[in-house]
């Protein structure tokens, strides 16, 4: 691209200011330069942290960290606390997200049904959930709904996360469904399909490419917001981190490790979805 634009312009004298600016720009845009700048920034951040920790006399104990991921003792291989917490977090997020997808799809279809009651129910649900902080919703689910229906903290957390994200998911689904042209509905209807068949065979398969990018954001958001259930002491990654810190006082090492674990999970998700996007890319 950039090569085309440069050749299109009238050639300027080598060594002129314009030429130098253009070369500088090209250099800045190149991949090695980007990596270099990135490393530089990371170095500054890490150096800042380390220097700060040094100044406050922090005693680094990184050598103790691998034990919390896994250890090999006389009894053989054992997963560490952080790994167990990670599995719990993934379980929690997966279950909640599947449930959120189901509830979100129902809410989106109700909203699109054209029925006055359906639309009203969907909008009330949406506004109620969307305009409440997640933490407050969690308290409602645990202390009120949980108490009424005798839910344990794990189920209450799953339901809370599912309901909270269902509201956001339903909006993504609605937008993706609305992105399909009316002509597709008409063509599907004109060969005798019912509304359900239209969605199942024609509309939803085409919406996938519109919902994948925002849905990735939503899954990543879900994994991260699952940390909030640590306030009701559900044993997931963040709770484990808190417990470990109160046992060991290694706040820096443990929080850095936990943050890195979250990042690895969400980055893997992003890569996976990019792959899916390519698969579902359909030219229209």
């Amino acid at each position: 691209m950039s090569r085309h634009t440069t050749t299109d312009r009238p050639a300027s004298q080598p060594g002129s200011t314009e030429q130098m600016v253009r070369q500088a720009r090209k250099l800045l845009k190149s991949t090695p330069m980007a990596v270099l700048i990135y490393l530089g920034i990371m170095y500054l951040i890490l150096y800042g942290c380390l220097a700060g920790a040094e100044a406050m006399g922090y005693n680094w104990q990184w050598y103790r960290m691998p034990d919390y991921l896994f250890r090999i003792t006389d009894d053989g291989f054992q997963w560490g606390e952080i790994s167990i917490g990670l599995v719990k977090t993934i379980q929690l997020s997966t279950l909640s997200f599947v449930l959120a997808l189901v509830i979100g799809l129902i809410v989106a279809l109700l909203r699109l049904s054209g029925l006055v009651v359906g639309t009203a129910v969907a909008i009330v649900f949406l506004e109620f959930v969307r305009n409440m902080p997640l933490l407050v919703l969690l308290y409602i689910f645990y202390y009120i709904i949980g108490a009424i229906f005798d839910l344990d903290r794990y189920s209450a957390s799953i339901l809370c996360l599912a309901v909270f994200h269902a509201a956001l998911v339903s909006e993504i689904l609605r937008a993706a469904i609305n992105a399909i042209s009316v002509g597709q509905w008409e063509a599907a209807r004109s060969i005798g399909m019912s509304t359900l068949q239209c969605y199942r065979y024609i509309i939803l398969p085409q919406s996938i490419k519109f919902m994948l990018p925002p849905m990735t954001g939503e899954v990543v958001h879900m994994v991260k917001s699952s940390a909030i259930v640590s306030v009701i002491a559900v044993a997931e990654l963040t709770t484990i981190g808190r417990n470990l810190i109160s046992d060991t006082y290694m706040s820096f090492e443990i929080w850095f490790t936990i943050a890195a674990v979250y990042m690895v999970v969400t980055l893997m998700l992003s890569v996976f979805v990019t792959f899916m996007e390519r698969r579902y890319a359909v030219t229209t």
Partner: peptide, 24 residues
């Protein structure tokens, strides 16, 4: 009656100005 509408649509083919083929 939805049943009537679908029964009719099965007997009536329609070709649109914009084709409206299913792109996927």
């Amino acid at each position: 009656h939805t049943r009537n509408i679908r029964a009719v649509r099965m007997e009536v083919g329609m070709v649109f100005q914009q084709f409206n083929l299913f792109p996927h």
